[in-house]
Structures are given as structure tokens and as C-alpha cells.
């Protein structure tokens, strides 16, 4: 009888294992909760802060510069004894409260470059929706300060989606096709050195044309993590992936040809 019982258990467990295995063998798709920020009329500060947190560490690409090295001020930790950004933002510009200052720093970063830093930050309004920007502001405020972003700051969702999608994409630096203007405008020199100008986080681009073909340069701009230059493996993931969206085709081509000719 024990043999029979064991056989029954074996058949049952075997059948279950087979079904479970098959279901696990096919590629797995999970239905995620839509991440679209539908920060409606009754959004709570906590929701804004958590959304901003995700943007800061994710799609926003902020950590590429802030909090890493000396290219940009620390935001989440102490900066020159002034505390995290939430504590110091209100004192930066006379007549601007913390909220307004942070928002404008995101949309037109070159207006308020902190002394001692290069103007390398891209205009975040090109990359993020107004809702996302306000979520970021709320998140930054929550670091050392009080969150005073409310639903009334955020434009309603319909206008915001159209404004992001129908903004004429003039490209970086006003659509200029002068390579050096693009390089400065896109903030490349924040990390890369070219002709002696710029930082040393990324590979030196001065002689990049002798190492990479035009195609590889293009690929490296569009998908920076696909191939990492030797010696820079540790910095994988730092270079923002949004240049494909920001540069116009003409600008990208101009930039690629310029770099490829730098032998």
C-alpha cells in the first residue's frame, strides 16, 4: 500500500511540477501598474515625493552628475556645510522661494549655475513632463526641507501631454549644427575631455576618431551602455541615454562626423 501511496503522490506532484515548469518556461510578462504620472487634483505630497524619487534615480538621469564626483553639487547630501538641497534652496536667490528656484533650475539650469561648476546641465523641460518636473521638485524639497508643492502647481494632464509632445524639437543648443556648440550645449564636456576642455569621467574624445568608426560613435551616443570603453567599465550607466531624443538628425550626423574626423 505504501508503494501505491507513493506512486499516487508521485503522479500528483509530477503533474503539478510539469504544469508549473511549462508556465515558467515561457517568457514572463508581468502587467505593471501604469507608471504614467496621473497626478490629479487630489495628489498627496507623499505620492509626489515617491514619484520624484523614482525619477531622480531613474529616468531623469540626475545621478549621472549630482552626487558623483565634482561636476555638479551634491543634492541629497551635504554641500559645503549648507546641508542637503531642501535646506539651502530657499536661500540661493533673493526673491525666489525654494519651490520656484528648484523649478527654474530644472527648466533653465544655466540661469543659476552654482559657483565653481560648469554649465553642463541639460534643460530638463525637454526630457520630462511638467508633472514629472514638479514631482522632482517635491522630492528635492523633501531632502532637508518641507514639501510645499501641491496639486494646484501642476498643470492639468491634457495640456501637459500635448505640450510635451507638440513642443517643436529644435534640438540642443537651438538646433545649431556647429559641433563644438552641440558638445557644449549637450553637456558632453561635463564628463568627456575634448581638445583639453572638459572632465575625465568618460573617455577622452580628442582622438576618438582613431579608435572608433563613425558607426560606433553614433551607436555610443545613442545607446551609451552597449559597448563600454576599456577602463571605464565602472562608469557604465552614467552617460544619459536621451541624446537620441534630444539631438536632431542633422545635429547627430554633424557631431558624429566631427568626432570621427578627430584622429
Amino acid at each position: 500500500m505504501w508503494a501505491t501511496n507513493l506512486r499516487i503522490i508521485g503522479v500528483v506532484l509530477g503533474t503539478l511540477a510539469l504544469y508549473t515548469l511549462i508556465a515558467n518556461k515561457i517568457p514572463q510578462v508581468q502587467s505593471e501598474v501604469p507608471r504614467a504620472l496621473s497626478l490629479g487634483a487630489n495628489v498627496t505630497p507623499e505620492q509626489l515625493v515617491s514619484a520624484g524619487d523614482q525619477l531622480y534615480h531613474g529616468a531623469g538621469g540626475c545621478t549621472a552628475c549630482h552626487g558623483l564626483g565634482t561636476r555638479a553639487p551634491n543634492l541629497l547630501t551635504d554641500e559645503k556645510g549648507q546641508g542637503p538641497v531642501g535646506a539651502r534652496c530657499g536661500k540661493r536667490e533673493a526673491g525666489k522661494d525654494c519651490k520656484a528656484y528648484l523649478y527654474e533650475s530644472l527648466t533653465s539650469p544655466r540661469a543659476y549655475v552654482v559657483a565653481g561648476y560648469e554649465p553642463i546641465m541639460p534643460e530638463m523641460g525637454r526630457i520630462l513632463s511638467p508633472q514629472q518636473l514638479w514631482a522632482l521638485v517635491a522630492f528635492l524639497e523633501s531632502n532637508g526641507g518641507t514639501v510645499d508643492v501641491s496639486a494646484s502647481d501642476i498643470p492639468s494632464s491634457t495640456t501637459s501631454t500635448t505640450s510635451t509632445s507638440s513642443t517643436p524639437s529644435a534640438g540642443i543648443a537651438g538646433g545649431s549644427t556647429d559641433p563644438m556648440t552641440i558638445i557644449r550645449g549637450a553637456g558632453c564636456t561635463g564628463c568627456h575631455k575634448i581638445n583639453g576642455e572638459g572632465g575625465a569621467i568618460g573617455p577622452d574624445l580628442t582622438h576618438v576618431g582613431s579608435r572608433l568608426s563613425a558607426n560606433l560613435i553614433r551607436e555610443s551616443i545613442l545607446t551609451p551602455d552597449a559597448k563600454i570603453a576599456k577602463g571605464f567599465e565602472k562608469f557604465k550607466g552614467i552617460m544619459p541615454k536621451m541624446f537620441g531624443n534630444q539631438l536632431t538628425a542633422a545635429q547627430l550626423e554633424a557631431l558624429v562626423q566631427f568626432l570621427a574626423s578627430h584622429k
Binding site: 494632464s157 491634457t158 495640456t159 501631454t161 500635448t162 507638440s166
Partner: peptide, 11 residues
């Protein structure tokens, strides 16, 4: 598909 979409600001 979503039940509704926003097309150039129009639902």
C-alpha cells in the same frame, strides 16, 4: 488598447 486616448489634447 486603452478605453480612451488623448489626441492632441482632445479626448
Amino acid at each position: 488598447p486603452p478605453p480612451q486616448i488623448t489626441f492632441r489634447g482632445k479626448t
